[in-house]
Write a protein that binds this DNA or RNA. Structure first.
Length: 324
DNA sequence: GCCCCCCGCCGCCACC
DNA sequence: ATGGTGGCGGCGGGGG
């Protein structure tokens, strides 16, 4: 069992802490060997958090009992790091254990020199300050996260979830990572707002599917029969269905629709063509079908999605943390 | 543009 | 483990 420590101090960022807890701290009896997670602090007494919330975390003096450390945030203007924390985090890293930072958490790792010569990122609003303070760190722009298997930095709150999902994939495989991701994404969808437009966090694909998926993407605008999809993967139809489900936790058809939706969204964001044209381009036979799936997945109509994108000026950037 | 209804087809999965 | 089958439900298409 991997033991997780989420390290907080006074002025703990509530949202980032919540993201870490959601990923690693929820009981998930359906998975054996799920993480055991503590929110820990080196300070005494209740900690202040966002919006006047107070927290009681587990007081510790060392981190030896843990295997994975999460820094959900850290003051960006704090040059002095308490000796106990510096020693504990350095020794944690020296043992080859994994450390993840969310948002401003990268400042702690950089202060300790753990990121020297490595790639790192942080929330965009701290980017200039970070680059100036740590020129020896290779700052990466416009990514959701960077992760080398040992040290990870994520750009902001929601990107911390993407990084966490990647770590869960490392530990528990695609299937579990997709299930966890799916649950997070689905609840995000229901709350509305921009968060409903997040993309599927786990996009890695096992080798046995790459050919078939590439073929499907290339011919997305034409009808794709599941029998030929299976044939492209060189599997019997039954095996294809079974492996597809266990790998992506999606049926082949559901995957196809999600890819067609992604294509349609890209065209809507670019603002070119009418709905019928976009429906044809993305492989939905007609506008009605596109609208149906669009509403089903995103809760709004294609036209109002386009309007929202236009009003914010520019289309969303794809971050390399989502690169395939 | 959106939401019904109906119908025919086919994708999916329990079962073998 | 893989592969075949049948039933069912969901999807696309057409009409209102």
């Amino acid at each position: 069992v991997t033991r997780v420590a989420i390290l907080v101090r006074d002025d703990a960022p509530l949202f980032e802490l919540g993201c870490a807890v959601e990923l690693f701290g929820l009981p998930r009896p359906e998975y054996p060997d799920w993480y055991r997670c503590d929110v820990v602090t080196f300070e005494r007494g209740p900690l202040r958090s966002t919006a006047g919330v107070q927290l009681l975390a587990k007081a510790v003096k060392r981190l030896d009992a843990y295997d994975l450390l999460i820094i959900p945030g850290w003051p960006t203007d704090l040059d002095l790091i308490p000796g106990a924390i510096a020693r504990a985090v350095r020794s944690f890293h020296a043992q080859g254990k994994r450390i993840l930072s969310f948002c401003s958490g990268a400042f702690l790792l950089a202060h300790l020199g753990l990121l020297d010569g490595r790639e790192a990122t942080t929330h965009w609003r701290y980017a200039d300050k970070f680059k100036k303070a740590f020129p020896q760190v290779r700052y990466v722009e416009n990514v959701l996260y960077v992760y080398d298997g040992t040290l990870g930095c994520s750009a902001g709150s929601a990107a911390g979830i993407d990084l966490g999902i990647e770590v869960i994939r490392q530990d528990h495989g695609y299937r579990v990572a997709n299930q966890v991701a799916r649950r997070l994404v689905m609840s995000a969808q229901r709350r509305g707002g921009q968060s409903q437009f997040v993309e599927t966090p786990v996009q890695q694909r096992p080798a046995q599917f790459t050919q078939a998926l590439d073929w499907a993407l290339k011919h997305l605008s034409t009808p794709i029969a599941m029998n030929s999809f299976a044939a492209r993967a060189k599997m019997s139809r039954r095996t294809f269905d079974r492996k597809f489900r266990s790998t992506f936790n999606l049926s082949p058809q559901e995957w196809l629709v999600s890819q067609r939706l992604a294509a349609a969204r890209a065209l809507l964001e670019q603002g070119k063509g009418d709905i019928e044209w976009i429906a044809a381009q993305s492989g939905f036979g007609n506008g009605t079908t596109l609208r149906h799936h669009f509403r089903d997945a995103l809760g709004i109509t294609p036209t109002s999605y386009r309007a929202q994108c236009m009003s914010t000026g520019k289309s969303r950037k794809r971050a390399s943390g989502l690169r395939q």
